[in-house]
C-alpha cells in the first residue's frame, strides 16, 4: 500500500515537473526552448549515478554478508540505472543537436565515458544470465558491478579533467552549490524534476527488488520441484526393479 502511494506521488510529481519544465519556466535567452531538455537530462544522469552507486554498495554488502537480498538490490540498481543512463544520453542528444549542431561526438570524454557506463551495466545484466546458481551469480555480479563502478567518477569528473564539447558543472561542483551558473528559476525547475524523478526511482527500485525476490523464489521452488521429481522417479524405478522376477 505504501509503495502504491509512493507510485501515485511519483506520477503526480513527474506530471507537475514536466508541465513546469515545458510550459511554465521561460526559455533560455541563448539556447531557446532546447534548454528545457536539460531538466530531465540532468535528473536522469544523477539518478543513473545513484543507481550504479547502490549496485556497487549492495555488491560489497553481498560479498561481506552473503545475503541474497543485497544481490536483489544490486540487480534493481543496475536495471534502473541502465534505463536512466539511456534517458540521459537520449536527452543529451536531443539537446546537443540544436545547441552544438551534432547529436554525438566520440571525441568528447563525457559522452564517451557515459556510453561506456551504459555498455558496462548492460553487460552486467547480461553477465548475470550466465549462471543459475544464485550465490555464484551474486558473487560474480558483485565483482563485475564494482569494476564497472570505477567509471562513475570518471564520467562525473571527465568535464573537469579533460576538454570537450560538454560544459562543466553548473551546480554539481562544490563551489557552485550556493552560487550556480544558471538563473534560480532554472535551478528550481531542475531541482523539481530531480525530486520527481527521485520519487519514480524509489518506486521502481522497490518494484524491481520485489521482482528479483519473486524470481529467486520461483528458481528455488523449481529446484525443489526437480529434486522432488527426481526422487519420485528413483523410488518408482526401485520398486519396478524389486518387483521384477
Amino acid at each position: 500500500m505504501k509503495t502504491r502511494i509512493l507510485g501515485f506521488a511519483a506520477l503526480l510529481a513527474v506530471a507537475a515537473a514536466t508541465v513546469n519544465g515545458l510550459f511554465i519556466v521561460p526559455a533560455d535567452l541563448n539556447q531557446g526552448d532546447a534548454q528545457r531538455i536539460m531538466y530531465p537530462h540532468v535528473a536522469s544522469a544523477w539518478l543513473a549515478y545513484l543507481s550504479f552507486g547502490v549496485t556497487a554498495m549492495a555488491g560489497i554488502g553481498y560479498l561481506v554478508r552473503r545475503d541474497l537480498r543485497l544481490d536483489a538490490i544490486a540487480l534493481a540498481g543496475a536495471e534502473v540505472g541502465v534505463m536512466f543512463t539511456a534517458f540521459a544520453i537520449w536527452g543529451g542528444m536531443m539537446w546537443g543537436r540544436p545547441v552544438w549542431g551534432v547529436f554525438w561526438q566520440w571525441e568528447d570524454p563525457r559522452l564517451t565515458t557515459t556510453a561506456l557506463l551504459l555498455a558496462l551495466y548492460a553487460g552486467y545484466l547480461l553477465f548475470r544470465r550466465l549462471t543459475d546458481d544464485p550465490h555464484r551469480r551474486a558473487a560474480r555480479a558483485a565483482v563485475v558491478g564494482l569494476i564497472a563502478a570505477i567509471d562513475i567518477p570518471i564520467v562525473h569528473f571527465s568535464v573537469i579533467w579533460w576538454r570537450g564539447l560538454h560544459q562543466g558543472p553548473t551546480i554539481g561542483d562544490p563551489s557552485k552549490i550556493l552560487n550556480p551558473s544558471a538563473p534560480p528559476l532554472f535551478v528550481l525547475a531542475l531541482m523539481g524534476m530531480l525530486a520527481a524523478f527521485t520519487l519514480v526511482w524509489g518506486y521502481l527500485m522497490i518494484r524491481r527488488y520485489q521482482l528479483a525476490r519473486t524470481e529467486w523464489q520461483i528458481e528455488e521452488h523449481g529446484r525443489l520441484g526437480r529434486i522432488s521429481a527426481a526422487r519420485r522417479s528413483f523410488i518408482t524405478e526401485s520398486i519396478t526393479e524389486e518387483a521384477a522376477p
Binding site: 531538455i37 537530462h41 536531443m94 543537436r97 540544436p98
Partner: peptide
C-alpha cells in the same frame, strides 16, 4: 527536439 526528448524520457 524538446518534444522528442521529453516524449522518450
Amino acid at each position: 527536439f524538446v518534444i522528442a526528448g521529453y516524449g522518450v524520457i
